[in-house]
Amino acid sequence: MNVNPTPVQGQPRIGVLALQGDFAEHIHMLDLIGINAIEIRKVQQLNEIDGLIIPGGESTTIVKLLHMFDFVDDLRSHVESGMALWGTCAGMIVIARKLANPYPTPLNFIDIGVERNFFGRQVDSFEAELDIKGIEGDPMRAVFIRAPIVQDTGDDVETLAIIPAKTDGTPEQAVAVKSGRVLASSFHPELTKDTRLHSLFVTLAEEAQIDSTRRNHVSHTTEETPATV
């Protein structure tokens, strides 16, 4: 196994939100591509990372825990100042602008409208082959579990993957989108062995890292914003 036990100098620092859900699977995937990711359980840890993954889990629970443990304001300021962010499934719901459903209230980190459990209940969960913009080679095997879909996107949001329209009249559905350094996907690449989408996210975190290095270099004499604890 391609394990890299110590952080490599210059490597982007990636965290996986570890309040609830399948965070261990994301950390394992990053491990496979040589990234030593950290579990994020406290808001102060956001200062240590260039990119954050919000994993699959229960979106109502994750939103509740983010509020409970005072993550929301700091998370917003980190995203606004360029931290890379990726929400998978529940994570996508958490970061959306609005939901078609009454719960939970999403945090609006990417300009998309999302519908939860679009395909139905657990018995309707499925897998599909997806062509994803920016991913070379074979289609990705995508696992959809009580999955949400992207209903509408803002002008600066790029659709990376769709589920094609069905013969029963169901129109095509966007299931992976990107806006700046924020990525959202309806499915769970962390449940497969295909690390290509994780590699794509690492490049976004690398951009964030270069940006923050440059910013710190330019403004190293200015006062640091104190982290709210």
Binding site: G56, G57, E127
Partner: peptide, 13 residues
């Protein structure tokens, strides 16, 4: 995987 996957999503809960 789809069946076991839902249990993965419940972890830590």
């Amino acid at each position: 995987r789809v069946k076991g996957g839902l249990a993965q999503m419940l972890k830590g809960g």
